[in-house]
């Protein structure tokens, strides 16, 4: 059971990292990316292949996985530069599916649907299964902490301000003197880089990846984490990811308590429970559990109430 809990904590951490990355693209810059799982897959495969086939050190493999995902992110960003909303969503969804299909079919490269096994984990043999999991949890927590710290800084920095402006009105941001395309691509690169890193962390934890790990359902769980937690808020992303993993897993234990359900019905009931929970959250917290907050840079001290102002415009309009 302890083993299971640690593994779930790691999963929650990886979800949190993906939610943080997606939040930069979707929550801050307002671009709907339904290709989350594609970038996770790129990160996982690149890191796994480099460590397995070329014998790279694990850390270098992970860094390369994140960089590869970020580069692909820039490429997808460039291709979709004129697409917005639903159209961007469809193209990114297609991208994620192509990653899955390419890894399924290019057997020479990625071993097809059999997947890659024996992906090294840091000191896996020396630590033994239990200690390895604990150690890996430590790594994941550290990475999520750093990612959260960076994401918080970005969100309330001048850079994040431009992203949020682009989300609200691209043309205004452009007239404000900001090169919108460059900012969008940067947001895409940072976000997809985090997604790639999450994929690489996943690969070296489970030691096995296959195309059917990277299905669109995962993208939806990440979107769900953000919606429930609070889109545009990094704390919300963390909370939402943990809540979603908790729900996904806890329903596993609730369902068997209902005696007359078959396995298939049980699985369906889990999905229903999760959907109902999301609906309830969004009914009472339309902006998620922790809504986005306005940034209030510190203002200099007010001079005494201004008598100099001739008239009070605000009261009349």
């Amino acid at each position: 059971m302890e083993h299971y809990l640690i593994a779930m904590a790691i999963t929650a951490g990886l979800y949190a990292l993906m939610a943080l990355g997606t939040n930069i693209i979707w929550g801050m810059a307002g671009m709907v990316n339904l290709g989350v799982v594609g970038f996770v897959g790129v990160g996982a495969y690149v890191s796994a292949l480099l460590t397995l086939k070329l014998g790279w050190p694990i850390a270098a493999g992970m860094a390369a996985g994140a960089l590869a995902a970020a580069s692909v992110g820039i490429l997808v960003g460039l291709i979709t530069v004129n697409l917005r909303g639903d159209y961007l969503a469809i193209v990114t969804l297609g991208f994620a599916e192509s990653v899955r299909i390419v890894t399924s079919n290019e057997i020479w490269l990625a071993n097809g649907t059999d997947g890659l096994s024996g992906i090294p984990g840091p000191w896996r043999a020396d630590l033994g299964p239990h200690n390895f999991n604990l150690f890996y949890l430590g790594i994941v927590v550290a990475v999520v902490a750093v990612a959260f710290f960076v994401a918080e800084r970005l969100c309330y920095s001048p850079f994040g301000r431009v992203l949020r402006a682009i989300r609200d009105d691209e043309q205004v941001a452009s007239v404000a003197g900001k090169y919108v395309l460059a900012f969008k691509l940067k947001a895409f690169a940072i976000g997809t880089g985090a997604l790639g890193l999450a994929g690489a962390l996943y690969a070296h934890f489970t030691s096995y990846i296959a195309p059917d790990v990277f299905v669109p359902l995962l993208t939806l769980y990440i979107k769900l984490s953000l919606l429930a937690g609070g889109l545009g808020n990094n704390r919300g992303a963390l909370l939402g990811a943990v809540a979603v993993v908790f729900f996904l897993e806890s329903t596993r234990f609730i369902v068997p308590l209902i005696p007359w359900l078959t396995h298939v019905q049980g699985a369906a009931l889990r999905e229903i429970l999760i959907s109902v929970t999301l609906l309830i959250i969004l009914r009472y917290h339309t902006k998620g559990l922790i809504p986005e907050r306005l940034s209030h840079p510190a203002l200099p001290a007010e001079p005494s109430p201004a008598h100099a102002i001739p008239s009070r415009t605000g009261a009349m309009t």
Binding site: V150, R153, L154, S157, P158, F159, G160, R161, V162, R164, A165, R167, D168, D169, V172, A173, A176, G177, K178, K186, I190, G232, E292, L294, S295, H296, P297, L299
Partner: peptide
């Protein structure tokens, strides 16, 4: 007006030569 930005942020957005608009500097 950018609705989800405060009035102050709306003004600051139009500010010029802010090095913090570079992602690396900001982070």
């Amino acid at each position: 007006g950018l609705p989800r930005l405060s009035v102050l942020e709306n003004l600051l957005l139009y500010g010029t030569r802010q090095p913090g608009e570079k992602a690396l500097t900001a982070a």
